[in-house]
Design a protein around this nucleic acid. Sequence first.
DNA 1: GTACTATGTCACCATGCAGTGACATAGGTC
DNA 2: GACCTATGTCACTGCATGGTGACATAGTAC
Lengths: 225, 225
Amino acid sequence: MVPVQPQGRLTTVPGTTAVVRDKAATKARLLDAVGTILAREGFGALGVNAVAHEAGVDKVLIYRYFGGMTDLLHAFGQSGDFWPSITEVLGEDPSELMGLPLADRWAIGLGRYAEALRRRPVTKEILAWEQIEQNELTDILRQARGEWFEELMSHFPGDEDATDADLVGTVLLIVGAIHYFIVLSRLQDDFSGVVVNTDEGWAQISTVISGICQRTLVPRGETDA
Amino acid sequence: MVPVQPQGRLTTVPGTTAVVRDKAATKARLLDAVGTILAREGFGALGVNAVAHEAGVDKVLIYRYFGGMTDLLHAFGQSGDFWPSITEVLGEDPSELMGLPLADRWAIGLGRYAEALRRRPVTKEILAWEQIEQNELTDILRQARGEWFEELMSHFPGDEDATDADLVGTVLLIVGAIHYFIVLSRLQDDFSGVVVNTDEGWAQISTVISGICQRTLVPRGETDA
DNA sequence: GTACTATGTCACCATGCAGTGACATAGGTC
DNA sequence: GACCTATGTCACTGCATGGTGACATAGTAC
């Protein structure tokens, strides 16, 4: 489907081609190919043959250099920024966000989280994959997400008197919904009216999320209008 | 893997077997096999060969009787109660539920919805499938769910003064989260601490949902304590 | 130059898949 | 009984997959 150079080649003498032999470059080509296929065709298309073809490399090199497809995925999982960074959620100046009330902090943070996911086609694909299969790659990335979430929570110190019990549960429920819509958006335009593949649709989703945060994540004693 | 009778056979004379020829029964066997495989191995295992083997029938009959795998799935999609019935959500006596405040109605309805999904392994599988592929079966069932949701909404008349705009959005967000946890529960035990494969875990999820409903789905003018 | 190794190419295997054509026979009609 | 058709069996093609062994050659050390 995609025009791929059979391998990195140099034309030395006219009419002749000399194969460039560079293990490191070939490994990089293979890792890149995994990401390219994931973004373009989804995890269902991943396979020894497809990756080798995409990289313009013989598939035997996957076995020689990585040990097999599983190990290649393992290496891939440790090679990219599949997960939003903490600053991507908290913003350049976290103290700015921290000045806001708890509910606003979460409303903004969750909105940024959704945006960050929407920007990452490979991450979308991995979220989908995670729901369908358990393998090296999804395990690695699920664990990374868990640690990431822990760290994020540590940056969202509970307010003096926040209703902590509900807080984590509510946030995780919203995160689950975000993941659901993100994964769905790969194939569908909407979910019973909730538009999941346009900025406008996500603005509405963010509004709903914000409303839930405002009403749920209020410190005790206070109450909304 | 599973011991399957090569075909419905009757032993007439000892040492001899006579094949029972019954088109209707064979078609039913094939439809059953689809459900069995979906529930046991997931949609990834579905295929002409697998279904035929599970049914103990030659795969050529799939083509003769249904036209192919796609048409078989189409027939399967119209053959079961994959979706919870409205009464399954509203309860035996809907008027009982209707006597409650809006927020309680939704809290209970959404809880029952989640329970109904948890009871349906094939539906779980289809929810997962829907996030990964678009095909005859998922299209049929997605449309059915859309109609189902419309009807359900018609049974939840907005309160005199309810904040309707947020209502649908909030409900759909919660439904999305439920779907996410349901699909995840096929492979994982929890989601960053949210347990998705035990009654206790779902009780907690229901509590969170109920809290969101109580705080979000209140008619204007009122306010929670 | 010679020899060696690492890098890359190629041909092949076994397996599983969707799909098809030729054959066998049960059960009914005449 | 003879015959016909619908039902079911079987053997096969063509294709893609994951995986492997034998070969070719670039680059290097000597």
